[in-house]
Amino acid sequence: MTTSETKVLNKRDLMKVFWRSFTMEWTWNYERQANLGYGFAMVPILEKLYKDKPEEKAEALQRHLEFFNTTPHVSTLILGISSAMEEQNSTQEDFDTSSINNVKVGLMGPLAGIGDSLLWGTLRIIATGIGTSLALQGNILGPILFLLIFNIPHIILRYICMMGGYKLGAGFLTKMQQGGLMDKVTYGAAIVGLMSIGAMIATMVTVNIPLSYGEGDSAIIIGDILNGIIPGIIPLLFTGFIYWLVTKKKLKTTVALLMILVIGIIGSLTGILGI
């Protein structure tokens, strides 16, 4: 049945997938990661498309329980593409079903690259910056703005990805990669993320070195000298040191956190570091 009229899904069906996509990481597991979340989101579409074809429905359900992982907030882009492809598959006899998962697999890595730097690296950092600066003064607007600044753009983006992914269908991946658009978006997001991180190292990492050299009024405080060379140089160097430990020495996050606690206590005991 290969006719020009292949649209079976309507906006309501897509909205069901959109809402269900919010639970993407609810059953995140080590074996196949967000696979069950993905399958869960696809259920309404598959139930509709393969209503009278139980065997094809079973195949499709299994297809969407394969390994899946990407930034959850933009997973709707792939869900939209999968929806379009399943729709085509249900109406065309000669559709290559293996292409559905191939597109999924091909897209989730690059999408996670963009999504992680955009959502985790940039948007969350902006929300944290504004939220914590208010919250440190005990202002209730801190946590509220924190949630709103992250979630309003996130939900809009999730919606655009859903509808856009469905509209573009399977051709999306090739188009993005041919034009180098993917690289450009990744590079652009990296710029925003890194500039924010640089700014936050300067403003949110605090190190005081009250250790002084000499006596009385002529005493020279080491921290002041270092800050005179480049303000904030100590936080920057300290972050660089931690970066080196985490990337080159493969230090675990928890170990690094405990190590910082110990540094703080030793610094306080010896008087090298101050509040």
Binding site: W120, L194, L257, G264, I265, G267, S268, G274
Partner: peptide, 22 residues
């Protein structure tokens, strides 16, 4: 006091991890 100092140092770890991603 050491804990207060550590609180100031802690974000460095987060920024290091974030940076290493990008």
């Amino acid at each position: 006091n050491g804990l207060t100092i550590a609180t100031g140092l802690m974000p460095a770890l987060g920024f290091a991890i974030l940076a290493s991603m990008i």
